[in-house]
């Protein structure tokens, strides 16, 4: 059946399967790295802003500006701009590992903003109550912010991972490998539309799985 509907996909089947794994590889690793970075910077934004538990106008404004700057660079340009830096960090500019560098830089500012917004949802009076109980800043971050904000953080993470899957395909334009690469270099360049459509379908399935798993998790953490 595969041969009838997707003849060209069947023809490159091993490469197609390989590209699925490459997309998963890029998504998972850049999620993990950008997740840690974005979470950290989101927390810095929340605690250093005016009225935050570690208010610091200088740190806040610097962080805020860096995040804004990085967010305003279009990803396709970021890919090109990052070439020398990528080369310096991973000693290559092609392949999935090389793609991780621009992917992380492209997504962590976005995630940091999402984290910031999620944590700002927490009632400042709850933070004040924690301070009245003698909680220190680290305690407030780990036991209040990250815990009370968990449902919103999970939702923010779903949105981010889904955006990231989109970015991995764009990285295909510079030869990162993965489904985007297959769709562009084979489906688009050789007019093999069935390859493009197959790549799209696999990506849709990935997005659905992330969305479904995330919603389920978020629901589990809300106690009404």
């Amino acid at each position: 059946m595969l041969k009838q509907i997707f003849p060209n996909v069947a023809h490159i089947w091993p490469q197609f399967v390989q590209s699925i794994w490459e997309t998963i590889y890029m998504t998972v690793w850049s999620s993990v790295i950008a997740g840690v970075l974005g979470l950290g910077i989101g927390i810095v934004l929340v605690i250093t802003q005016e009225g935050g538990i570690a208010e610091d106008a200088y740190v806040y404004s610097l962080t805020d500006k860096v995040v804004n700057l990085l967010r305003s660079i279009p990803f396709i340009i970021l890919l090109a701009v990052m070439f020398p830096i990528t080369n310096f960090i991973v000693h290559t500019t092609v392949g999935t590992t090389a793609a991780l560098v621009p992917l992380v830089v492209g997504i962590f500012p976005f995630y940091a903003r999402q984290v910031q917004n999620a944590l700002l949802e927490i009632d400042p009076q709850v933070i004040e109550a924690a301070r009245s109980m003698g909680s220190g800043n680290l305690e407030i971050i780990f036991r209040i912010y990250l815990r009370e904000g968990l449902p919103d953080l999970i939702r923010a993470s779903i949105v981010t991972v889904i955006s990231l899957i989109g970015l991995t395909t764009m990285a295909g334009a510079i030869g990162s490998g993965g489904l985007g690469d297959v769709a562009i270099s084979i489906g688009y360049a050789r007019y093999q539309n069935d390859v493009t459509i197959a790549a799209m379908l696999v990506i849709l399935i990935m997005v659905f799985i992330v969305q479904f798993a995330g919603d389920w998790l978020a629901k589990k953490t809300v106690h009404l």
């Binding site: 009076q125 709850v126 109550a129 109980m133 009370e148």
Partner: peptide, 28 residues
């Protein structure tokens, strides 16, 4: 912080931790 632990405080809007059980709140 140590001194604050000896000064309990309650609020108009209770300010409980919604992610924790009643027991968890008292344990906090």
């Amino acid at each position: 912080r140590q001194a604050r632990k000896k000064i309990g405080m309650i609020f108009q809007h209770f300010n409980l931790l919604n992610s924790r059980t009643v027991l968890g709140n008292v344990e906090y």
